[in-house]
Amino acid sequence: MNTGDMAISVRGLTKTFGSRTVVDHFDMDVPKGAIYGFLGPNGSGKTTTIRMMCGLLIPNGGSGQCLGYDILTEPQSIKENVGYMTQRFSLYEDLTIRENLDFIARMYRMKNRKTDVDDALKGLGLTDRANQLAGTLSGGWKQRLSLACCMLHDPQLLLLDEPTAGVDPKARRDFWDEIRRLSAKGVTVLVSTHYMDEAVQCDYIAYIAYGKKLIDGPAPDIPDMIGLNTWRIEGPNITKMEAEMRRTAGVEQVARFGSVLHVSSTDGAALDRVAAEHRKKGTYHWQKQKGGLEEAFIYLMATATDNFTEPKEAAE
């Protein structure tokens, strides 16, 4: 891949805090214009990685570029061209909506500050409430205001660190509509998330656990890369069946989706044998299906958790 097509391209990124290695030899390529999902459990090092990529933290090892600027030597240029939205609401609650936008605009020394702020307010639909204190906004509106602040200086790259944590489903959907709109305009988006339904909306995905990258690639390819075989089971008393499946040898993973059960295994032949046996009984309806992202992530999380229980300490 040509680095010219990459918004972000890092190699061997490593960060240690004291004796703890929080990010360990991390490689990643984010193609321009893509929505790139960054997944992993709490404390896996997602935030630290994002901070290193936008010039907020200097890595202990490794190299890379972000929008063509070296992450080690040109953090100032990266900051000028990147929009970074932090995990927590990080605007001033005791400033009004307009004052917050205006403050950020001045941080980027924008030329047509007044018009840009007015446009942003109009885009948010908050023109009437411009003089309301930001602290009085609801969670969903706070996130949208944060996003508007990040987008104020028209960055080519957006870094969103768990932007929808603790936001209600409707607001999350609106938020993602906005992200897709921006992506359609050519903005590259790197977004970290916990939510499966959000991961599914990404073009590319990287999964990180305990500071190490487990897998990355185009979202549709991820299930194949993991190589999970999946059967879908439907029928009466699915809870009893779930318990039975968890005890059955040859079944590596059992995931329940409402009244439907997905059983998976990396050993396809073994799983097929289990399926054949049960289909003879005829109580349940078994159907083989292509492994989806959901199963893939449940599988990754299960292995990551194992990985994680050994050393207890967590780092964000």
Binding site: K79, E93, C149
Partner: peptide, 13 residues
């Protein structure tokens, strides 16, 4: 404490 410092230093300031 309020987390605004992080957003602030992410700008070119």
């Amino acid at each position: 404490e309020r987390g605004t410092m992080e957003a602030l230093i992410a700008t070119p300031v």
